[in-house]
Amino acid sequence: METPRERWVGADAGPIVRPYAVTRGRTRPRGMDVDLVTLLVATGRTPGERVWLSREQRRLLELCRHPSTPADLASDTDLPLRVVQILLADLHQYGLVEEVPQAEPAGRSTGRPDPKILMRVLDELRRL
């Protein structure tokens, strides 16, 4: 019979924590919509007295010392992308991270990626 400790630790995975436990039950970010390639950087501010940061949020804040995307941060922390997006939106709400403005390519002002490039990326992914 398994002991309670064995249920919460995977042989190869280590401690198992459900994503909803990390996000306190939330499934969507509040405030800022954080997509895969949004560049975020720490503002250098310290959290207020009433702000409690989880271990995961402190780790994300540490990694955001250099501009990073949610996709990279999810990879670096081994957290699901959606969890990272929710935690980053919280950090943004606290004023601890901000979006890095990206320069617009010459001749384009829509702020949207070129559909031809997206289709090419999609085609290459399908080949994998």
Rank of each mutant, 00 (worst) to 15 (best):
R30V: 04
L73T: 03
R45G: 02
V37W: 11
G48S: 14
E62S: 13
D90H: 14
A103C: 00
V84M: 11
P80K: 12
P70C: 02
A74T: 03
L60R: 05
P47S: 09
V22M: 15
D72S: 11
L81C: 03
S68P: 00
G95L: 03
S68D: 07
L87V: 03
L87M: 14
T23R: 08
S75E: 13
V83G: 09
D33Y: 06
V83R: 08
P19S: 06
T27M: 12
G31M: 05
E49V: 08
R30G: 04
R28Y: 10
A106T: 12
R26G: 00
S75A: 14
A106I: 11
R65E: 14
T77D: 08
G107M: 10
P101W: 05
Q57D: 05
G25Q: 08
P29M: 00
M32K: 09
A74E: 05
V51Y: 01
L81Q: 13
G48K: 09
P29L: 00
R18C: 05
R28A: 08
L61R: 08
Y94R: 06
L91W: 03
V100R: 07
P101D: 13
Y20V: 09
L39C: 01
T27E: 13
T38M: 14
A71K: 09
R65P: 00
Y94E: 13
R24N: 15
L81W: 04
Q57K: 13
I86Q: 10
R82L: 13
E62D: 13
L60F: 07
T110H: 12
V22N: 04
L39W: 12
V34M: 06
L61Y: 07
D33N: 08
L73F: 05
S54A: 14
G95H: 06
V17Y: 09
L39E: 11
D35F: 08
D76N: 09
L73R: 03
R28F: 10
L96I: 02
Y94V: 02
A89C: 04
Y94S: 02
G44T: 06
A42E: 05
G111I: 09
L73C: 03
L36N: 13
V37E: 12
R55F: 07
G95W: 03
V37C: 01
R82S: 12
V34L: 05
L88Y: 03
V34Y: 01
Q93I: 01
T43C: 07
P101R: 14
V97C: 01
L87Y: 07
P70R: 02
Q102P: 00
L96K: 02
R28D: 08
D76L: 15
D78R: 15
D72H: 07
P70D: 05
V100E: 05
A103Y: 00
L53E: 12
R28E: 14
P115L: 10
M32N: 00
T38V: 11
R108E: 15
G31T: 03
D90F: 06
I86L: 08
I86D: 07
A74G: 15
P115V: 06
P70H: 05
S109H: 14
R24S: 15
I86C: 09
L73Q: 04
I86R: 09
L61F: 06
Q85E: 15
A106L: 14
V83I: 06
G111P: 10
L79F: 11
R55P: 00
D114A: 11
R55V: 09
G31R: 06
L96T: 03
L96Q: 02
R112H: 13
L39D: 05
